[in-house]
Design a protein around this nucleic acid. Sequence first.
DNA 1: CGATTTTTTGAATCATATCAACGTACGTGG
DNA 2: CCACGTACGTTGATATGATTCAAAAAATCG
Lengths: 195, 195
Amino acid sequence: MHEALFTYIRQRSTTPLTGEDMNFLKSMLLPKKFRKGEYMLVEGEVCKLGGFIVKGAMRQYSVDDKGVEHVIQLLLENWWVGDRESFEKETPSLYYIDAWEETEVLLIPKNSYDAMKRIPAVAEMDNTIINKHVSALQKRVRDIIGLTAIERYENLVQAHPEFLQRFPQRIIASYLGITQETLSRLRHNYKSSEV
Amino acid sequence: MHEALFTYIRQRSTTPLTGEDMNFLKSMLLPKKFRKGEYMLVEGEVCKLGGFIVKGAMRQYSVDDKGVEHVIQLLLENWWVGDRESFEKETPSLYYIDAWEETEVLLIPKNSYDAMKRIPAVAEMDNTIINKHVSALQKRVRDIIGLTAIERYENLVQAHPEFLQRFPQRIIASYLGITQETLSRLRHNYKSSEV
DNA sequence: CGATTTTTTGAATCATATCAACGTACGTGG
DNA sequence: CCACGTACGTTGATATGATTCAAAAAATCG
């Protein structure tokens, strides 16, 4: 089960991973299974553990004052999960993270993560993912501001068709920043137009 | 003029900056004055230089297919400016960055920036700012998705009153993701309600 | 001062939200 | 294996927030 992470690291760095590195990593990672609906993080808690998803699907969302959930991120296997802000600064998180499917995760506490970053390949990986994260968020801001709902939906179909298979429509709608009714109507028009 | 950057680094790290570090930094930084309207980066170009704003105001924006500008970020003194995605991956940028006021910037090429990160205090600073950047973007996504235009405006007034003094309303409107007409009306109602 | 940019206002229109009802699928316990 | 409950998706009617286009008013700059 650790192999998925090693492959992930190798793909994101130029430096190789030594056998010693791998043993070191193994010693720090805590494999854990989340059942569907189980929480990895709740609002108000400090995110003490980062996680690498080996298998499954999770979602990160916030709840506004009207009690409406807003999906911030959808996560599948080979993604790092956690609230980076809370994890790094050790401040209470604004988000919930739960498992959407039965999910296998390799958990790692902050001090271990810091130790892990001393491995050059891992440091490279960390750099790569945080930069990707920033790009993705920036793109998301651009999309929400500049595109209509249907354009955002089409973009998502292109970029992450997996999401549509793994998450129900109301979750996708929330991720797109629209209501489920609107998404339903959008899809209806969209389908009839692509004949 | 470098002093502003040194202070900035010190405030964001636990390790002190040695005199040697400071000389090293000075040797790599290229002071440059941008005149109002002058571009630091245009869409399609690789962002080869990062910049630390010593004095002035800049904006980062993208232009959609209808030719409408969307302000992604507003930047004042003591901010790092640049398109991190393009800078790190050396890929063409999707953004324009220009000076809104006469602006003094300390520029630094990518390889120097990497070298600079070998100074522990600078590495810490880099970590801090990228994490802040992620938090800010995440907050922005949450705000755009979950709040109405007026709530976003009120938030901005709270968080960055300086912006309202340094940038015209149409730029603020673009940053909030609304038209200038809408912002004008919003402010009108807002003012009359705060009696 | 005139020229340009910025802000405001009005009217019409559009996209999306809201509320409510109904249909459908899915999974669990009897 | 069926019946029932719960979650999910669709559809309709109406409401609302924001946009668009046009024009006037106000502010700013050389």
